[in-house]
């Protein structure tokens, strides 16, 4: 059971990383144009204007 002392913090940190990534996507307005982003990624021209 000693492994718990390691596993629980690890799982919490991983979850925290996910949460931080979610906050980042929210902050950088990545949900503003879901349809456009889905299409842009399939274009064969080089997108030299990615979102910052």
């Amino acid at each position: 059971m000693e492994v718990l002392a390691l596993l629980i913090p690890v799982s919490l940190v991983l979850g925290g990383v996910g949460l931080a990534a979610f906050f980042w996507t929210l902050r950088s307005r990545q949900y503003d144009d879901p349809e456009g982003d889905a299409r842009r990624i399939l274009r064969d021209e080089w997108d030299d204007r990615p979102q910052p």
Partner: peptide
Amino acid sequence: CIGALEGAVAALPGVRAARLNLTL
């Protein structure tokens, strides 16, 4: 449409950038 629209507008003199929001 994204390429055609943005390209056509960006080619105008005086236009710095154009971006299409396809959702809106």
